[in-house]
């Protein structure tokens, strides 16, 4: 059992039906080495305050119901050892719902946006299946490996609510929906891959709005690594000819233009090339950069651009390694 430790739990409390604002209540308790965060949630409810509310069900890391945050860290309560978090954060653990603005009661949130976005990417195999099959539908080991563990997702919402883009862009699908879109698009039985790729290529809701912060990879309790699937979806847009020419796709492809010429990224060219006429909206910033001496607007011959040594090697490697086109 090991040594017990006295800790303080500061829990977010809110009842949307009766409270105007949320508040925090503190509970002191002795915690043992083998207790889980779910045990502590239970103890708050059973030993301190019966009105304390949270979701729980399977207790086996499978149903995804008990996801909360502890000191800002996305946490699946039934899988997370409490003392490990005490070692990480100290003697005060702060329990909060995954999304404070969606709080309904204490740890319980309205997860409607998550389910709506998840459903929108068709998170199932789309296929005409013979209702009376004469043989099993089999998959090779290689095909299964293509899933990259995306099928371990339990829809707990940890990545979704850890994503800063979900927080500021209401139409954004979010990392869990993208991981599902990837998982079903690489399924050899599926026929809707193109629909999913087109939907997730849209500016605003789609993968191009990902800020690449890796919060989703950090948050996932099942190591699904959603951002890896987001990158895969980006690649698949080009591989399958779904990518449309827009500021984001040109920005990704445009790197090769500069690298071929200089080895380095031409920071001015990438903005001009990606934006086209839209470049005018960057004028005030461009002016500030010129004023600070950061860019050289009249360097038409690109004399100030750095050039990598052995540039011919870089050019050769691009020539023989490039796989995708826009």
């Amino acid at each position: 059992m090991g040594n017990k430790k006295e800790i303080t739990i500061k829990a977010f409390r809110f009842n949307a039906e009766t409270d105007y604002l949320p508040y925090y209540k503190t509970y002191k308790m002795e915690v043992g080495r083998d207790e889980l965060i779910l045990d502590l949630l239970n103890r708050v409810k059973w030993e301190h305050d019966g009105s304390f509310s949270y979701r729980r069900s399977c207790r086996h890391g499978i149903c995804g119901a008990c996801a909360i945050t502890v000191n800002g860290k996305a946490t699946l309560a039934c899988k997370q050892n409490a003392m490990d978090l005490v070692e990480l954060f100290g003697d005060e653990l702060i329990f909060e719902p995954q999304s404070k603005k969606r709080a309904v009661k204490d740890m319980i949130i309205d997860k409607g946006d998550f389910w709506e976005k998840h459903a929108a990417v068709k998170p199932y195999v789309v296929a005409d299946v013979d209702p009376n099959p004469s043989s099993e539908s089999t998959m090779s080991q290689e095909q299964v490996e293509q899933f990259l563990d995306a099928d371990y997702c339990i829809q707990c919402g940890a990545c979704h609510y850890a994503c800063p883009v979900v927080e500021v862009n209401e139409e954004y699908f979010g990392p869990a929906a993208f991981a599902a879109a990837y998982r079903f698009s690489v399924d050899p039985r599926d026929n809707a891959s193109k629909d999913r790729l087109e939907a997730t290529a849209e500016m605003g809701p789609g993968v191009w709005d990902c800020v690449k912060c890796f919060e989703c990879a950090e948050a996932c309790p099942k190591d699904v690594n959603p951002i890896e699937k987001i990158t895969k979806l980006h690649n698949m847009q080009f591989e399958q000819g779904v990518a449309k020419r827009n500021v984001a796709t040109k920005h990704a492809e445009g790197f090769i233009r500069s690298i071929k010429k200089f080895g380095y990224l031409d920071e001015q060219d990438i903005v001009l090339y990606s934006e086209g006429l839209g470049v005018v909206k960057h004028l005030s910033e461009a002016f500030k950069m010129i004023k600070a001496g950061k860019v050289h607007p009249f360097d038409v011959m690109k004399k100030k651009m750095p050039r990598s040594k052995n540039l011919d090697e870089i050019q050769k490697l691009i020539e023989i390694s490039q796989k995708n086109e826009l």
Binding site: K212, T231, H234, N235, F238, T249, H251, A252, E253, F255, I256, S258, I259, G263, Y264, L265, S308, K309, N310, E313, I314, L317, I318, S321, Q322, K323, N324, L326
Partner: peptide
């Protein structure tokens, strides 16, 4: 490292993952 090239800044990775691996390995 004057021979080095751009790392792709996670954007080249979105376009062509393999090419970005080769350039970073170089």
């Amino acid at each position: 490292l004057d021979e080095a090239s751009c790392c792709g800044a996670s954007h080249l990775q979105d376009f062509d993952d393999f090419l970005s691996l080769v350039l970073n390995a170089r």
